[in-house]
Amino acid sequence: MTAGTALRAGAVVFFAALFQAAIVSSLSIAGGTPDLLLVVVVSLGLVRGSVAGAVLGFVGGLVVDLLTLETLGVTSLVLTLAGFWAGRYAETTARGRRLPVVLAVGVMTVLAGFFGFALHYMLGDEVVARHALVTTLVPAVVLNVLIALPVHALVRAVVGERSGFEPTREVELVV
């Protein structure tokens, strides 16, 4: 990734985190809230690969945790894994699939919701499972999927798609 691309990707994540913390998080549509930052990170992972996705997810999560004065590292951890897995998905099985971003965003929203719930539970936060995993997560998945395509198009236009994806010919085994 060139410096210019990294700068643009960083700016995209930074402003997505700002929008998420300042505006999007206050929107409540059908009981759910879209997660713009997650969609951006997944999208970046898809277009720039797993390493970029992980790093940008970490940075975006850190910005959100700083802005919201939440426990540092929680959002970073969730988004790091989300960006990494989205990148791996793009590097391996996403090729040839139609609308991979929609599938990736939907799956990552569910996984991030469950993982975030588990993290907060382990940290002792009072979280109602039904509220976190059903009432808000289901509409959030729908909302994220709805914004996935335009956000992905915007991210791809700003950052550009990585050209050097190495097709995986064989399954790797680490011995």
């Binding site: 390493v51 970490f58 590292g73």
Partner: peptide, 25 residues
């Protein structure tokens, strides 16, 4: 080397996040 770098990066980031969580907590 790419695989190693990828795993190293994500591992470092995960560990860093966990350290942040632990220290903040």
């Amino acid at each position: 080397a790419g695989v190693l770098r990828r795993r190293l990066v994500v591992g470092v980031l995960v560990v860093l996040a966990l350290v942040l969580i632990s220290l903040t907590f």
